[in-house]
């Protein structure tokens, strides 16, 4: 059974339908890269998976938990689904270490000592050992985003959602963040990424999803799809990107 199952999901803002029946299966350990033009509904789809957005029809389940049916406690769901944002969204009044420790100590009631040890280990994992006491404003964009990744990993999620996490970064800082994501992928973390990094999608992704006008227009193995797009829309999109 797939870890994340999306069945015919529809969502509209007023009269405008942004998701027009999207279905997608994500298995454990998959690295799914969602690409597409802005406005194609890719970010909205991602945000439906952890309940940041509601949807009107269809069904989403994560690890057997139904999302958005009003019965599943979103809090329980979110302990299993991590999310990293384009704008990092670190808490500016807390240090890097405190950002990571917040959810474990508040939500899971972990001991301060344990949480601190884990935060230090996670910072080391993302290459930021020694930055525990730095405030977000003292860190570069790339460093902030790596702290944000560490923060979401602190809840030991089964799936990590990444919403254009390198789009707000200066070009020279993109790679340090992608390297961390690549490492997570190699460790078997299930990842769903909305991204504009085509090279990354091709090299690291196990599945490519091309969204167009609120639908999954094409999906399959990244290398094959990039080499032989089946639809003119994807061909054009990939052509524009390269």
């Amino acid at each position: 059974m797939s870890l994340v199952s999306i069945r015919d999901v529809r969502k509209s803002y007023g009269a405008q339908e942004v998701l027009k029946g999207v279905s997608l299966d994500v298995g454990r350990g998959d690295v799914v890269a969602i690409i597409g033009r802005s406005g194609s509904g890719k970010s909205t789809l991602l945000r439906c998976i952890n309940g940041l957005e509601t949807y009107q029809a269809g069904a989403i389940t994560v690890d057997g938990m139904a999302v958005g049916d009003g019965k599943t406690d979103l809090r329980t769901l979110r302990r299993h689904v991590g999310m990293v944002f384009q704008q990092f969204n670190l808490f500016p009044h807390l240090t890097a270490g405190e950002n990571i420790m917040l959810a474990p100590t508040v939500v899971v009631k972990e001991q301060k000592g344990e949480a601190r040890a884990m935060a230090e280990a996670l910072l080391e994992k993302v290459g930021l050992a020694g930055k525990f006491d730095s405030y977000p404003s003292q860190l570069s964009g790339g460093q902030q985003q790596r702290v944000a990744i560490a923060r979401s990993l602190a809840m030991r999620p089964t799936v990590l959602l990444c919403d254009e996490i390198t789009s707000a970064l200066d070009p020279e800082l993109v790679n340090e963040v992608l390297k961390v994501v690549e490492q997570l992928a190699s460790e078997g973390m299930t990842l769903i990424l909305v991204t504009h990094e085509m090279r990354f999608a091709r090299e690291v992704g196990t599945k490519l999803v091309f969204m167009h006008q609120g639908r999954v227009h094409e999906e399959g193995p990244p290398k094959a799809l990039f080499a032989n797009p089946a639809t003119p829309e994807l061909a054009q999109f990939v052509g524009h990107q390269n």
């Binding site: 952890n50 940041l52 809090r75 999310m83 944002f85 704008q87 969204n89 670190l90 917040l102």
Partner: peptide, 22 residues
């Protein structure tokens, strides 16, 4: 900023925990 709400919500904090800590 709205992102502060979304980030803390995604970390499974309740509404009052978001208020209190973030």
């Amino acid at each position: 900023p709205k992102g502060q709400w979304e980030a803390s919500e995604s970390l499974a904090l309740t509404y009052w925990e978001q208020m209190r800590y973030v």
